[in-house]
Simulated scan of single mutants.
Amino acid sequence: MWNGKLAEIWQLITTSPENFKGGGVWSIIVNINGGLKAIGYALLVLFFVMGVVKTCGSFAEIKRPEVAFKCFIRFVLAQAAVTWGMELMTAVFQIAQGMISTIMDSSGLSALSAAELPSRMVDIIQDVGFIESIPLWAVTLLGSLFIWVLSLVMILTVYSRFFKLYIATAIAPIPLASFAGQPSSSIGIAFLKSFAAICLEGCAIVLACVIFSAFASSPPAIADDTLAAATVVWNYVGELIFNMLALVGAIKMSDRLIRELMGLG
């Protein structure tokens, strides 16, 4: 189960929003983005007028060529951001995907290393009698429950990244229209930084998986194979769950880590 979830994460993190779930969700997001462009153009004019009123002290000031030209350039650039916002955000995501591919190539991993039981552990389990197998079953069920919960949290975190990408892409024309006015441009800047943080979140997730892959390549050692089988398995499972907790924690905090590195708080 754990190896299957890791393989699913490895596949999801390298999948673009256009190809996720066959691309059906992306086509809906594109239609929503196109529909909100009309509202974005209306807000474009509103933000532009508000910006001119707040930055220009009088009507005579806006008659100055340099001031009028500056306002005109700002309006044109803001309109271009609303019109080509989808292409802009797709380019940012492709840059982040290129970084993810570079991380994978530099690590020398084409896929995550699967976690396997040591051969000595397999021999100990197979030699257990019926009576001794009862506590061993209890340990196995408890360990399986922990692994199921951790894998569920991990996969939900990765899926939530796609939801955030889709939501940000769908409403992009609204915050991008704020670039038309100088006082409101901070809204658009914060939106672009947040979208870049969502894209870079994939890099943090890949780095966490690469680090865990190094742990998985050298599984926990059996401290003392003379102990009871249930004790040996419990010690092994406990150390394995600790490594899994470290991976899940790193994936769970990837959003906060990237936002702090980009100064988004």
Rank of each mutant, 00 (worst) to 15 (best):
E8G: 13
E8T: 11
I9E: 09
W10E: 10
W10C: 09
L12Y: 15
T14Q: 14
T14D: 09
T15V: 05
S16M: 12
E18M: 13
N19S: 15
F20P: 11
G22V: 04
G23N: 05
I28P: 02
N33R: 08
G34H: 12
G35C: 07
I39P: 06
G40D: 13
L44P: 02
V45T: 01
F48A: 09
V49T: 00
V49W: 00
M50G: 07
G51L: 02
V53L: 01
C56K: 00
F59N: 06
E61G: 09
K63G: 09
E66D: 13
F72Y: 10
F72L: 11
I73C: 03
V76H: 07
A81E: 10
E87S: 14
L88I: 12
I95F: 05
Q97N: 15
Q97F: 04
G98W: 00
I103L: 14
M104I: 11
L112C: 12
S113P: 13
Q126E: 07
P135D: 04
P135S: 03
L136N: 03
A138K: 08
L141R: 15
I147N: 05
W148M: 12
I155Y: 12
L156T: 11
V158L: 08
S160V: 10
R161I: 08
K164D: 14
Y166F: 15
Y166L: 10
A168C: 13
A170M: 12
A180H: 04
S184Q: 00
S184L: 01
S186W: 15
I187S: 04
G188H: 01
K193M: 08
F195G: 11
A197T: 02
C199L: 08
G202V: 03
G202A: 04
I205F: 06
A208D: 04
S213Y: 01
A216V: 09
S217K: 13
S218N: 06
P220F: 01
P220M: 03
A223L: 07
D224R: 00
T226M: 06
A228Y: 05
A229Y: 01
A230Y: 08
T231D: 14
T231A: 13
V233P: 11
I241T: 15
A246L: 12
I251V: 15
S254K: 02
D255Y: 13
D255S: 14
L257N: 07
